[in-house]
Simulated assay, not measured.
Amino acid sequence: MPTVAPLDLDGHCVATAWLKDIPHFALADGVVHRLDHGHKRVEAHDGLLAAACDGGRLLTGGEDGKVTAVSPDGSIELLAEIGRKWITSVAAGPQGAVAFASGRIAYVRFADGRLREFQHPRSVEGLAFAPKGMRLAVARYNGATLHFPATESKPAELEWAGAHMGITFSPDGRFLVTTMQENALHGWKLADGKHMRMAGYPVKVKSFSWSSKGRWLATSGAPAAIVWPFQAKDGPMGKTPLELGTRGDTMVTQVCCHPVEEIVAIGYADGMVLAARFADSKEVLLRRAGKGAVTAMSWDAEGRRLAFGSETGECGVVDISA
């Protein structure tokens, strides 16, 4: 049976991450907690809004206009500071590059400290780096923009009416998918610009996660994890998604695919966490319902332990090998 090691914190958990096998929990108040031979904490921001993990560091952006990198030992490196502006999105890139956004500007900071700015007509909502090469995707109003930060080449524009909020590349780099302000996803097949529309959600999609080989994209936004197939050359077009972990009365708020197996951890609005297998929809209860919605989840590298956090500060680690 899975065992849960709880960590009760005070406040909304924005992100969880594993650094050198140590679970980290980033809270909205700007404090990053870690379980490393006891409970330790470090203050990264005066108000934390966004976070991403590059494997070795937890990258964070705050209400204080700062972008920081938190190391496994708790040390903090200031990567950038743009004055009294909110950093609303952060993404980890190749070769130590970091992207972050504030207002209408997307920034890319290279490993040598060089900073590039990319202006947009409307606010930048989401950021994602391509799995190969230095290519940055920006979610914006009426579509997405692809920048090539290491060169002076013109950006590529992908248009689709509406507000695009989150953004992700498929692990093989063939597809780009956005979450929308409406209850839908939109996607592009990058080779030919072909559109993919994934609609029918009862609420907005706020969480998405690719399976280990990129064959599936799991999403929140319904009383089940909606899992779209991406094996075919045109992605999910004409295909029916899987519906895993269906609960009639409770919305899925977070999804996190296992790093090795075709399994997804599913977090719900009542704090429950399930794991479900794509092949046969088999479910395992990882955590019973708590006091608030699950807002963050991440597996360790081996996929034996799952860190989770909630909007009420109920956090912890589930060990599935127990």
Rank of each mutant, 00 (worst) to 15 (best):
G61S: 02
D234F: 15
C13T: 14
K85W: 11
V284M: 02
A296G: 07
I105C: 01
H164S: 10
H164A: 08
N183F: 11
V252H: 06
K20M: 08
E311R: 10
A69T: 13
R305W: 05
S207H: 07
M180Q: 12
A50Y: 10
T312L: 04
G221W: 07
S220V: 11
G238C: 12
A296V: 14
R34I: 04
A199G: 06
K85H: 15
G133C: 07
A184M: 15
P6M: 01
I167T: 02
E117K: 14
D319G: 03
E314D: 13
T60A: 09
F175N: 01
S211D: 13
V177Q: 02
S71R: 12
F110G: 03
E243R: 11
A5C: 00
G83N: 07
A224G: 02
R197D: 13
G133M: 11
E283Q: 14
D36Y: 06
L115C: 07
W210L: 11
E117T: 14
L158C: 04
H164G: 00
V294I: 15
G238L: 08
D112Y: 04
G74Q: 05
L244Q: 03
T145I: 10
I105D: 01
W160Q: 15
E261V: 04
K85C: 09
A275F: 04
A191T: 13
